[in-house]
């Protein structure tokens, strides 16, 4: 029994998304902002991993993100391989106040390009943009012009003082790298919510239509009369696989 309800006007598809990046760059906070529109300062890091879902409405279709967040054991780098297997999208996050976290992000991008599914959409995300000086604020994801003048402090880890510019990674540097590697690029703040929804929408738009219809397409739309290829384990039961939106 396929669950293709003709009542659904827009086709909907699941997209598996994995979050990668150094500890404490704000991965979980980004997901929390996207899924619950919430932010908690100094939240205790979760150990393990988390699985969340959130829908994203595009004009022509609905994308349901299945989000895999890893936590607390980034050091072992052993969770990632099981998360990016068959993932269609990856959010590689660094902290704009911490240059080493960009290095780590670049390492992840390289690994994804080597190991993940060939068509994976990768977004590079510089988080904590609220800590940058106001004129460097990433208001549109394209604020590169103002900030590159900021001296890139070498190694010294300044305490973040209120009002001071804590940015240590110029937008331009990261953007140039992202362009070179063909990545989506955003600077975000999970704290204020700036650009968070935009990242996910951009990813949703960047997922090629073919990969949705293709092997992982679970939308239930019957393309050209092609039978739904999946076997539905719980077809007969009342709770279908169409669980409600996470929010």
């Amino acid at each position: 029994m396929a669950d293709s309800a003709p009542a659904q006007p827009k086709p909907s598809s699941s997209v598996k998304l994995v979050l990668l990046g150094e500890a404490a760059v704000g991965k979980s906070s980004l997901v929390m902002r996207f899924v619950n529109n919430d932010f908690q300062e100094n939240k205790e890091p979760t150990i393990g991993a988390a699985f969340l879902t959130q829908k994203c409405n595009l004009p022509t279709r609905t994308i349901k993100f299945e989000i895999w967040d890893t936590a607390g054991q980034e050091r072992f780098a052993s969770l990632a391989p099981m998360y990016y297997r068959n993932a269609q999208a990856a959010l590689v996050v660094y902290d704009i106040t911490k240059p080493s976290s960009l290095t780590k992000a670049q390492h992840w991008v390289a690994e994804l390009q080597r190991q993940a599914s060939p068509g994976i959409v990768i977004a590079l995300v510089g988080n904590k943009s609220d800590l940058a000086a106001v004129n460097g604020g990433a208001s549109g994801g394209d604020s590169s012009d103002d900030v590159d003048a900021a001296p890139a402090a070498e190694g010294e880890t300044n305490e973040e003082e209120d009002g001071a510019d804590a940015r240590r990674v110029p937008t331009k540097t990261a953007k140039a790298y992202a362009d070179e590697e063909n990545l989506l690029f955003f600077e975000t703040s999970a704290k204020t919510g700036t650009n968070v929804a935009e990242v996910f929408t951009a990813i949703a738009n960047a997922i090629p239509e073919t990969s949705l219809k293709g092997p992982r397409g679970v939308g239930g739309q019957t393309n050209l009369g092609r039978q739904e290829e999946r076997v539905n384990l719980v077809g007969g039961r009342t709770e279908g696989p169409k669980e409600g939106c996470a929010c």
Binding site: I47, G48, A49, A50, Q73, F76, L79
Partner: peptide
């Protein structure tokens, strides 16, 4: 892992 298990390859 979601339940807190630690994984090391």
């Amino acid at each position: 892992a979601v339940g807190g298990g630690v994984y090391v390859l």
